[in-house]
C-alpha cells in the first residue's frame, strides 16, 4: 500500500539522496523535488522523492505511524 512514510535525507549526491526511515537507509531520486538538502523530510514513492515535508508535519506523521503499526 502507498503509505506516506516521511523519510529523512541523510546524504545528497547530485540528483540522488540517501534517505533514512527509522534506521533503514535507501536511495531515492530527487528529480521531482526542488531545493531539498540534508536534514529535510520527503515522501518517497517508488524510489522518487515526490514531496517535501516540513519537520513538524513529518514528526506528526511518524508518530501516527508508530501508533498505528506497532
Amino acid at each position: 500500500m502507498c503509505l506516506a512514510i516521511p523519510s529523512k535525507i541523510v546524504a545528497v549526491d547530485g540528483d540522488t539522496a540517501v534517505i533514512d526511515v527509522d534506521g533503514v537507509r535507501r536511495e531515492a531520486s530527487l528529480m521531482l523535488v526542488e531545493d531539498v538538502c540534508v536534514g529535510d523530510y520527503v515522501i518517497v514513492h517508488a524510489g522518487y522523492a515526490i514531496s517535501r515535508l516540513d519537520a513538524d508535519a513529518a514528526e506528526e506523521s511518524l508518530e501516527l505511524m508508530r501508533q498505528v503499526f506497532t
Partner: peptide, 11 residues
Amino acid sequence: RIVNRICGICP
C-alpha cells in the same frame, strides 16, 4: 485530516 496520511500519493 488523519486519514490523508495513509497515502502520500493520493492524500
